[in-house]
Design a binder for these strands. Structure first.
Lengths: 199, 199
DNA sequence: GAGATTATTACACTTAGTGCGATATTTTCT
DNA sequence: AGAAAATATCGCACTAAGTGTAATAATCTC
């Protein structure tokens, strides 16, 4: 009664190598991005650092930006929906989003996260993509909320998603401006508290 | 006691030509974008259509995307702050933003606006830029609100800006999904009404 | 091991964007 | 008006991202 393929343990040499190569490229790229900046890093350099041919890069990523998107996806964006769905529903939707985000960021306050964040904020094109990521998070949160609160009107939940993710974005902005001294959760608490009062 | 240069009326041949060329390029580009899509339109084609050399294009725009940004800037983004500042301050900040947006969109429900909107929503890269524009609008609204309500705490106003522009974005999303049948102002009213209830 | 997949590479090509310098046009000054 | 300064236009050569194609090498299936 295993999966449709073989056994779980059997990953296969091919798949393993592919995973490793993908990781090598991502790591090499991030290293160079942090070292010399996003724009100044060429695909040739990334390919050299990762030990692959230039053309092979495009077998793994559809563009240079896609590397960053992958980092975002693996980090926050991908986890928004599952994290949210794991929350109890005996609270307001806004509160549920707040709690789920708090948990996520409380666990992940690593140095790399800060480096990556600065990198993302550095270049024009990258910043634009960041904002796309927020839109995706909004969408993910909205979908989760619809499953969690089926009786609530969907337009309401759409707005909750917008406001919650917006609060996160504003919190991050403030946190970045302050140089990341105080823990991010503090900023999150402040912006979420303002959601009620502001109107 | 005129201006430091000459007389107001005297625009100068050079400036006039420059303005005209800029316009010719923008119009030519938009026409081609709508005709064949953003990605499929090359700078060579735009230059040909506008009757200039390829190199000259970059004298006027720093990139292909910059054309779209220019359209956005001239349309909404640029006008957010002045429009908002023109509102009376004997109402809540949220209401002020709402009113100012309603006026703007009430006046500008043209066919071209719809075409441009669809164009902007069509391509990946363009959509990302769109979202940057929303961020700029947020910033502009925030600045205006700070001038209008100096006694309010700035964090509050920051959140008001976020929520108001967010409401606009969600409204536009719904409006686009419905194919632009009902007037946009309706959607705007709905999302703004939900700002209070949603929390 | 033979044959089917799939990963890797090389090569040639298109397009966006930049640097630089030459030429044409407009403005300014006398 | 005409010389000189400023600026707009253009051509050319270059870099870098990204694509199409087809050949080769590695892995998987049997």
């Amino acid at each position: 009664m295993g999966s449709s393929k073989k056994l779980d343990k059997d990953e296969g040499l091919r798949e393993r190598k592919k995973r490793e190569t993908l990781m090598r490229i991502a790591v090499a790229a991030l290293k160079l991005f942090i070292q010399k900046g996003y724009d100044a890093t060429t695909l040739d350099e990334i390919a050299a650092e990762a030990g692959i041919a230039r053309r092979t890069f495009f077998y793994y990523f559809k563009s240079k930006e896609a590397i960053l998107i992958a980092y975002l996806d693996n980090g926050l964006v991908r986890s928004v929906k599952p994290n949210l769905l794991a929350q109890p529903t005996d609270q307001t939707p806004v509160s549920a989003v707040h709690q789920s985000l708090e948990k996520f960021f409380g666990a992940k306050e690593s140095k790399e996260a800060i480096l990556v964040d600065k990198l993302f904020a550095s270049t024009e094109a990258v910043r634009a993509r960041m904002q796309s990521a927020y839109i995706e998070m909004e969408q993910a949160a909205f979908e989760a909320l619809c499953e969690m609160y089926p009786k609530e009107p969907r337009e309401s939940l759409r707005m909750v998603a917008m406001m919650s993710i917006g609060a996160t974005r504003v919190a991050k902005e403030a946190w970045r401006k302050d140089g990341g001294t105080r823990p991010f959760a503090d900023y999150l608490n402040e912006t979420f508290a303002l959601l009620n009062k502001a109107t």
